[in-house]
Each structure stands twice: as C-alpha cells, then as structure tokens.
Computed example of a mutant assay.
Amino acid sequence: MVERRSLWGTLLPHLVLMAGVAVVAFPVYLAVVGSTHESAVIANGQMPLYPGGEAIDTYYRTLVIGPSRSTREPVAGMLLNSFLMAMIIAVGKIAISILSAYAVVYFRFPLRMAAFWTIFVTLMLPVEVRIYPTYKIVADLGLLDSMAGLTLPLIASATATLLFRQFFMTVPDELVEASKIDGAGPFRFFKDTLLPLSRTNMAALFVILFIYGWNQYLWPLLITTRDDMQTIVIGIKKMIVTSDALTEWQIVMATAVLAMLPPVLVVIGMQKLFVRGLVETEK
C-alpha cells in the first residue's frame, strides 16, 4: 500500500533538513570566505559574506611558507603529521583488535574470558585518565617528538575488539567446520574467511578511528615540543595569538578549511562501506 502524504507533510521534513544543513554549513562557509580576505578585514568585524581576492596568496602562504608568527612551520607539514598519525592509529587499532577478537572467540586457552574482560574494562580508562604514567613511559623510552610516541599509546582499542568479537560470534560454525574439512589452518581460515566477511566492519571502524586520530589534541600537545612534529589541530591553536600581536586570521581560517578536507574525503570515499558496516543486521 502506497502512503499518500500531503504537500505540507512532504515539505516540512525537507525544510527542517535544509535548516539543519544551513546551521552546520554556515560556519564552514564563513571560514572559506574569511580565508580569502585580509586579516584586518576579519579582525575589525566587518568581513563581508562574499569571497575576497586573497585566496591564492593566503593558501600558498599557509601551505608552503607558514604563518610569520606562532608556529612558523608550513601547514603542509602539519597535515602530513596528522595524516600519518590518523592512518597509523586507525590501521593499528583495527589490526590489533581483529586479532585479539579472533583469539578470544576461536581459541580456547586459560583465562580467555578474563583477558577479554580486562580489555573491556580499559574502556573506563581513556588516555586523559592515564595521561601521566603514559607520558612517563613514553619519555623514558625516548619517544618524545616522534611518530611512534604520537601513535603507539593510542593504538589499542577495546571498543573495536568488542565489535569484532560480537561479529565473529555471529559467524556460523559450519564455516569453521568447512574450513577444517578443506584442510585450512587457523591463519588461512582467518585470512580467507573472516577477513572478507569483516570488510564492511573494518571500513566503518576505519572512518571512525581515522577521525578520532585526526582530532587528537591533548596527547599531541603533551608529546611534541618541536614545531615540525606538531599536528594540524595543535597548529590551529598556536596560530591564535593571545598577546598584543595581531592574529593572522586569514591563515587560521585557511588552515581550518584545510584541516577539514582529509576527514571529509575519507567519509565520502568510504561512504557506501561505512553505511553498510553500520546498518547490516547480521553485523
């Protein structure tokens, strides 16, 4: 039976949706417009709502030269640091979590469930809670101002382990028996059967974990002291000068716009797999 809806019943949801999009998109539009004007135009509160003529010069300075104050490093280097950090965290979390979930579900060893619940309890201990001991260990190992120091303490994920475990428990036992009949060992069963079945789950987790790594603020702030190792989030904060010096707002706006692009591209590029990984009932 086809439901008949009135014109108002069809129009109202679209109006609400467009209003929500406008509320979310307007600050982004202001950042794009602000990056095309001079700093004085933004600072005096009279920035127009249409683009200016400084876009090419502003983005060139931002990416290649860097701001003259605060960070003094090109934003291209910050983008690379953030991208490497987010990729290592996302891939590392997925790799460790899927292996730990595979071990918990398909292997029988002493204290198996105790190990799983120990992993699960770490959900209550975010990096902010264990920040001092984590920093002390990283400092003692000489990993300050390094990519290993930025990523290794954040690479374990109890959430991803739980999600993979719940998915593996829905895999029919017949697949395990069929693999044994075919002479497949544990590694081959994992590689040829479980990994293909987990593709959408891994895609959904990758998007979430990439954005998680990209948006990290507290840990990179503590672990990095050199300008060439700072991430894009830290760079934006350092560009906003609180002293008498005038903040180069056009550089800040351009950096904010550039900082949004990689997560947006990841979401757009993996949209189909991301949605399937979240909504498929058997997952």
Rank of each mutant, 00 (worst) to 15 (best):
M1C: 04
M1Y: 09
S6Y: 07
G9Q: 15
G9L: 14
G9P: 05
G9F: 12
T10W: 14
L11H: 07
A22M: 00
V24K: 02
V24S: 04
A25D: 03
V28L: 06
V28T: 00
E38T: 10
I42W: 01
A43C: 05
L49Y: 04
G52W: 00
D57V: 00
T58W: 06
T58I: 02
T58V: 07
L63P: 02
I65V: 10
P67E: 05
T71R: 05
A76M: 07
A76Y: 01
M78Y: 05
M78A: 10
L79D: 00
L79W: 02
S82L: 01
M87D: 09
I88F: 10
G92I: 10
K93E: 13
I94T: 03
I94D: 03
I94E: 01
A95V: 09
I96N: 10
S97I: 12
A101W: 07
Y102G: 07
Y106L: 14
F109K: 08
L111Q: 06
P126A: 05
P126N: 06
V127A: 13
E128L: 12
K136D: 15
L141M: 09
L143Q: 04
S146T: 10
A148N: 04
T151V: 11
P153W: 00
T159N: 09
T161R: 13
R165P: 02
F167N: 08
F168K: 01
V176S: 14
E177C: 02
A178I: 01
S179E: 06
K180Q: 14
K180F: 14
I181D: 06
I181N: 03
I181E: 06
G183W: 01
P186E: 11
R188D: 03
T193V: 15
T193P: 04
P196Q: 13
L197E: 08
T200W: 13
N201F: 09
A204V: 07
F206L: 15
V207D: 03
W214S: 07
W214Y: 08
Q216T: 12
L221H: 04
L222H: 07
T225S: 15
D227P: 08
M229N: 14
T231L: 14
I234Q: 05
K237M: 07
A254E: 00
L258Q: 04
A259Y: 02
M260L: 11
P262R: 08
P263C: 08
P263I: 09
V267C: 09
F274L: 04
L278H: 02
L278A: 03
V279F: 05
E282D: 04
K283S: 15
